[in-house]
């Protein structure tokens, strides 16, 4: 479905990704682990067309998407939930959701259906629908960011550190949401620092180090063998 093959990217003269190859199958949750600064978020930004790969290819459903404009990617079915959430702070919760809903070909009935579904999954967003996005708590903003991505009816969601800075109760909720999305057949590429959550939620896991994928294994194998995690992540 989504495949990065030997992708190299640069920020100015800094070589960030040194030939990353990752694959995500339809409906699969794939974890991307690694210490800070190893290139996990850059990998997602490269998929989203925010960083242009200097070498290698990014394909989605067999189509080259490397360097394609992000709005075209959204229409192809790729949604991105960035690390810092990037809520439209002055737009209400409802308007934040509408940014993903107002697409050609989505009927009014379908829009209502999708909103009802999201409000059922995130009741707090329904309560705060007329509140400005910037006034929500960190956890609520994270829920809004995920809900907003769901409005695109994506085939795959790129989730960048969704539990960062959240209290444990919220982390549990985010984990549940990932399970629900997985159950609905949405593929997820999950970048996380939270190793237990990633191993629990993912089918497969890639471990990155210094801009390269160093290890790749089914999550079940890593759950059973902590030596690998210790080797690369030091925990």
């Amino acid at each position: 479905m989504l495949a990065l093959n030997n992708v190299h990217t640069y920020y100015g003269k800094s070589h960030i990704l040194h030939g990353v190859s990752i694959e995500v199958q339809p409906g699969e949750v794939v974890g991307l682990l690694g210490r800070n600064g190893v290139g996990k978020s850059t990998t997602l930004k490269t998929v989203m067309g925010l960083v242009r790969p200097s070498e290698g290819s990014v394909t989605f459903e067999g189509r080259q998407i490397g360097g394609m404009a992000p709005h075209h990617l959204a229409h192809l079915g790729i949604a991105w939930v960035p690390e810092d959430r990037r809520i439209f702070r002055l737009l209400t919760v409802m308007e934040n959701l509408r940014t993903g809903l107002e697409r050609p070909g989505v009927t009014e009935a379908r829009r209502k259906e999708m909103l009802d579904k999201v409000y059922a999954s995130f009741p707090v967003l329904a309560e705060r629908r007329e509140q400005a996005g910037g006034t929500l708590s960190g956890g609520e903003q994270q829920m809004l960011a995920i809900a907003r991505a769901m409005m695109l009816e994506p085939k795959i969601i790129l989730l960048d550190e969704p539990t960062e800075g959240l209290m444990p109760r919220m982390v549990g909720q985010i984990s549940e949401i990932i399970n629900v999305l997985h159950g609905e057949g949405v593929a997820i590429l999950l970048v996380e620092q939270n190793v237990p959550l990633t191993l629990e939620a993912s089918n497969r896991v890639y471990i990155m180090e210094k801009g390269l994928v160093r290890h790749h294994a089914p999550a079940a194998d890593l759950r059973a063998n902590h030596a690998v995690i210790h080797q690369y992540l030091g925990i």
Binding site: A74, F88, T99, R103
Partner: peptide, 25 residues
């Protein structure tokens, strides 16, 4: 307006607006 929300979203965060499928150009 629908396009009004597009404009306000783009004004606040051009990159995220594009990621939400809004044709920013």
């Amino acid at each position: 307006g629908k396009y009004g929300i597009w404009i306000r979203a783009t004004t606040q965060d051009r990159v995220m607006a594009q990621a939400m499928g809004i044709p920013v150009p």
